[in-house]
Design a protein around this nucleic acid. Structure first.
Lengths: 147, 147
DNA sequence: GCTACATCCTCTAGTAGCTAGAGGTTCAAG
DNA sequence: CTTGAACCTCTAGCTACTAGAGGATGTAGC
């Protein structure tokens, strides 16, 4: 029914990304035509839409894999799904806190700069001396601010 | 003066990370003792502190490289430094906007879930059908929410 | 001087989630 | 029948590290 290009257009997921999802087993291997090109149906399309939407909400691919598996079993309790979503929410909230702290510090640093020479540049001073910061942002931050 | 382990302790940057920074040319190659082990001085320590602090504020390594180069020329105007810092601030603000939109959508989705079976799970429904979202978050979001 | 053992060395490969490019085949329109 | 777009596979690259193998060196205690 659908070529990979059409599917890409309809879902907003790029062609190489669709192939990548297939490669990592997130999308099932589709049928092929005589020439060896992929053919998709509406089921693939729905699944890909689901993935795209979950990605937009920041879910990692492994979580999406699990969500897809869970959604295939419609009579089960949705506790597991809820748990994944709540974990993601907590993660986003954590990132928000860190990003806000970071924003504050950056803004403070920039405002203080009177834009003279490098020698007197507040930005360079602050970056060089952690003691000039308000908050203990090294404790707020962690190495991964992923997403 | 300082072994790589000591430097790591003093700056809070992990040993392999220090070696990595050296490898990509962010830190100059230090001297070695007879056994071939790295020896650092206080200049290295200050430079590494600068890097660490800039990383904590979310600056990408390429920007840090530029900041370090600029800070080596103390009589120049600090406009270029200011520009980099402001660009970073803008980036952080952009990320904040996206993350807040994402947070709202996630929260809404989770609140609506009455925690029954998968069949009626609001989380699965929303993920499967973008039309159930409030905002056009696909427009707000972009693929890279890096950092 | 010797023995542990911590710390150091280099090198390679892996992480997430794609993206880009090479080099070649197939499809659809005119 | 030709042209050009779209498809195919495969490999390598991106950020900023982290982990591990396999081995050398440094240091403390006896």
């Amino acid at each position: 029914m659908l070529s990979i290009g059409k599917l890409s257009e309809l879902t907003g997921v790029k062609v190489p990304t669709i192939r990548y999802y297939e490669q990592i087993g997130l999308l099932p291997k589709p049928e092929r035509n005589e020439g060896g090109q992929r053919i998709y149906n509406n089921t693939s399309r729905e699944r890909l839409n689901f993935i795209r939407h979950a990605r937009e909400l920041g879910f990692p691919l492994d979580d999406i894999r699990e969500l897809l598996a869970l959604s295939d079993d419609p009579d089960q309790s949705c506790d597991a799904i809820d748990a994944i979503a709540k974990r993601q929410l907590a993660e986003v909230e954590h990132r928000l806190v860190r990003l806000k702290a970071l924003h504050k510090e950056l803004e403070r640093m920039i405002v203080q700069c009177t834009c003279g020479t490098v020698q007197t540049c507040r930005v360079i001073q602050v970056l060089g001396d952690h003691g000039l910061c308000v908050a203990d942002h090294q404790k707020i931050m962690s190495h991964d601010m992923g997403q």
